[in-house]
Design a binder for these strands. Sequence first.
DNA 1: CCAGACGTTGTT
DNA 2: GTCTGG
DNA 3: CCAGACGTTGTT
DNA 4: GTCTGG
Length: 219
Amino acid sequence: MCGRFTLTIDSNAVARAFNVAVPKSLQAGPRYNVAPTQDVVAVLNDGEPHLDLLRWGLIPSWAKDASIGSRMINARAETLAEKPSFKRLLNSRRCLIPADGFYEWQKVDGGKVPMYITLKGHEPFAFAGLWDSWKTADGEVLRTCTIITTHANDLVAPIHERMPVILPPDAREIWLDPGLHDANILLPLLKPCDPEAMQAREVSRRVNSPQYDGSDLIA
DNA sequence: CCAGACGTTGTT
DNA sequence: GTCTGG
DNA sequence: CCAGACGTTGTT
DNA sequence: GTCTGG
C-alpha cells in the first residue's frame, strides 16, 4: 500500500519537472514524511494542467462526516472501476500526485521495519490518484485525494504485498486528459512499475511518527 | 420499491 | 451519487 | 502508514 | 480491540 511518502523538492521544482503551471499562491517546501490527512501537491487538469493542494484521504461527496477520509487513503486498481466510491471519479477526477520516494513497513520477527523506496536516480515521479470535493457543515469545500495501489513488483514484494501505482512519464498526459473516459485505456495504465528502475533501503523508525518531517530521515 | 453501504490493509 | 441486498 | 485516544456522571 | 487524527 502507500501510507507515507516524500517529495523533497519544492513546488517550483515540481512544476518544472512536470512542465505544468504553478499558482503564485502555492508555495510548498520539501517534505520527508508526508502522512494521510495532510495537504499534498497534486497535478489537476481542468483545461490546463496545474499544481494544486489536496488533502490526502478521500472524502466522497456524499460522506456525512470527514472521518472516512483517514481510511480512504488508497484505492485498489483492480477493483476501483466497480466501487461506488471510485467509479465516477475514474471518469472525471483523475490526478497525479508528485513524489520522489515512499515508505513501506516490512514485517520482521518482533516488529516492523520502515523501508524507503525510490527510483535509482532519485528522480521525481507521479502516483496515479483520484480526487473529490466535499462540503463541510459550514458549506466550505474540501478537496481530497487517494493514491491508487496495485500488487507489488519484484523489488517491493519482499517488503510488502502492495505498492502505489507510479505512472511512467508518457502515461501522465493520458491519465490527466479530461476528455478521456475510456476505462479500457485508463485501467491498463495502472500497473506496477519496472522493478529494475527502483531501489529500497532501511530507514530510521523516527519516520513512524507522522509529526516528524526531518531531512535526516533519508540522509 | 426502500434501506443501507459505500474503503484498504493486515491479521486471525 | 450509485450500487447491493431485502 | 503509525500514534494515540478510547466514556459518563457527578463532584471538586 | 478499534477508531480517529496526522
